[in-house]
């Protein structure tokens, strides 16, 4: 639900990073924050518990410059991944323009990935969105760990509609900007259809 302001020539888009607990959603935002020039970013806000688990959301506003004379801003959000934060997680999807699903590549987390993916589909539907049509990108995070599932197997398990899929090691930045760029592109392309 992008907000186009013709008066101030601005467009704001909301992108949500979704995925199971500890999959690296916040790490994605943290890396983007660290690597973006100060003029292009706002504060990174983290509503987290004392042990740094996301409680409500992280928020990072990015100003990427102008497209066709419009200042283009992306508001990046993460959701809390832990199962019992379901009520808060659902709230963050309100008015979303694009979704990144961050999957944990470790074998023992495949069930958690599948569960949260199902959860994402349902919560999108409750907000009136369809995962088959909304701008959507998939990321396989933690590719540097030893006990990971192969790319092909994860793709078979988690890829829904041939969405762009990236391998990532979020704390080191591998795949982070590729993922962001892909979802931003889909969001802007979607806007161009309206």
């Amino acid at each position: 639900m992008s907000f186009i302001n013709y008066a101030s020539r601005e467009i704001n888009c909301k992108i949500v990073y979704y995925g199971p607990g500890l999959c690296g959603k916040t790490a994605n935002l943290q890396y983007i924050y660290d690597k973006t020039s100060p003029q292009a970013k706002g504060q990174l806000i983290s509503l987290a518990t004392e042990t740094d688990r996301t409680l409500f959301f992280d928020f990072l506003p990015l100003d990427l410059g102008t497209v066709r004379g419009f200042r283009t801003r992306f508001h990046l959000y993460t959701v809390p991944g832990q199962v019992f934060y379901e009520a808060s997680r659902k709230l963050i999807l309100k008015g979303v323009d694009g979704v990144v699903f961050v999957a944990d590549s470790q074998r023992e987390r495949m069930d958690a990935n599948l569960e949260l993916l199902e959860n994402l589909k349902n919560n999108l539907r409750e907000h009136g969105f369809d995962i088959m049509t909304i701008p959507y990108v998939l990321q396989f995070n933690k590719r540097d760990l030893p006990n990971i599932v192969s790319y092909d197997e994860m793709y078979r398990l988690l890829n829904i509609k041939g969405e762009p899929t990236f391998e990532a090691v979020a704390p080191q930045g591998m795949g982070v900007f590729e993922t962001l760029k892909a979802v931003a592109k889909l969001v802007l392309q979607e806007l161009s259809k309206k």
């Binding site: 186009i4 292009a40 066709r68 419009f70 931003a184 592109k185 392309q189």
Partner: peptide
């Protein structure tokens, strides 16, 4: 709704956003 200002957006426009 009025024609979106992004109606004719190109891949190049999007790539430019990310080049620094």
């Amino acid at each position: 709704a009025p024609v979106s200002p992004f109606a004719e957006i190109t891949d190049e426009d999007i790539d430019n956003l990310f080049s620094e």
